[in-house]
Design a protein around this nucleic acid. Structure first.
Lengths: 211, 211
DNA sequence: TAGATTGTTAATCGATTAACAATC
DNA sequence: TAGATTGTTAATCGATTAACAATC
């Protein structure tokens, strides 16, 4: 408890634990030991206990953890006990793919505004949301209380769009472009590279030849 | 050189460096120092040199690196100097999104087979590829020399599809479902969770309140 | 009480950073 | 030669693992 710096890997695992606990809830299992969680998600039991220890004591010695209780603690820790309003800028291939994908909404991320500059797209609907011109960015962010922006524009426009999102008051940005973006210190920026996972796979498939 | 165990973080950064070098090539810059790469992608210059040192000596002391040369070394290291044939299983929201997304093909990953079990989808085209019944999996993997499988089916079918991919002879699997999959040791498995990045963002946006 | 499992500490392991000799 | 920058070593930092006392 009171840990100031939580490893990113820990947070990622908490997210994985939470999904596994959800699965256990569906199977109506109500108590579980760290070793079982560990086996279920492929880490060590010490890892599970250590990760949880950053945030408090959630188990009972000799018994384990109550599944539902631990689940809701994790959801709260991850900030998933609320609904997040999200703006998507760039309704091209990747952008529309993300808008159609259900996985975000399932975890509480609601894409309530979609913007583009392409006149052919503006006015059409994407998953029930009308695509609007980027000019309305500032207005929509304020009226919808949007805190998170997804950047799925072409690489060349990425920094520009990012600057506008920051000016308009979002607190977090998820960058799907391959560009390195500059943001002020108070803005949380994360970069998502869909190809990078395939590239890690390709590296692992190929590199053992050369050692 | 001759390093047996390369940190995953290093491989991810090589991928980022390669993209940055590509950008430099477009700007017709032909020589660059580790410090410049570092500034460009947001790491330390020692990090850049260390990462490269796992694979050889690519620079000239006092001068730096030749951009094109380093780029092609990196592409080779990452296994991106060839075209990979990829099978996509599950042509739902996420699957079709990935099939439409250009970023994979840009890095050499060609989705040449798309399978589903939904009769309504089978026979329709996705980015020029006809969606077929999962029954043809084995045949297509062999005839197209497919080495990589993308799993984008509902969570409940994920393990089953994975087993069939393994039996059919793929070497690498990219799992987009939230399930933990079991595969034999010789199969390279990577899990991609699109929501996890949003959740890291949400954690970082929320957690500072509580410390 | 006996058995089980947590929470936590200390030991280990691995990755990043700083520093600098080598050298263009 | 003087200045710059690499490749590499050693020091630091951080994360994982093993072990076990606490305790249900």
């Amino acid at each position: 408890m009171k840990a100031y710096k939580i490893p990113e890997a820990t947070v990622m695992r908490l997210s994985i634990y939470s999904r596994y606990l959800h699965q256990l809830m569906e199977e109506e299992i109500d108590t579980i030991a760290s070793g079982d969680i560990a086996r279920g998600v492929g880490v060590s039991s010490a890892q599970v206990r250590k990760d949880l220890a950053y945030f408090g004591e959630f188990g009972t010695r000799g018994v384990g953890y109550k599944v539902e209780e631990l689940y809701s603690h994790l959801m709260k820790i991850l900030g998933l006990d609320k609904r997040w309003s999200v703006i998507l800028v760039g309704a091209g291939k990747l952008g529309s793919a993300l808008a159609l994908y259900h996985g975000f909404l399932d975890r509480g991320f609601h894409i309530c505004t979609v913007l583009d500059i392409d006149e052919k797209l503006i006015g059409t609907k994407l998953n029930g949301v009308i695509i609007e011109n980027v000019d309305v960015m500032n207005a929509r962010i304020i009226e919808n209380n949007i805190e998170i922006g997804l950047v799925t524009v072409p690489a060349l426009s990425a920094q520009n769009v990012t600057d506008r999102l920051v000016e308009s008051g979002v607190s977090g940005i998820l960058n799907f472009t391959p560009r390195v973006l500059k943001v002020p210190n108070h803005i949380i920026l994360r970069n998502v590279d869909l190809s990078v996972n395939l590239e890690l796979l390709s590296f692992n498939l190929g590199y053992h030849y050369k050692r």
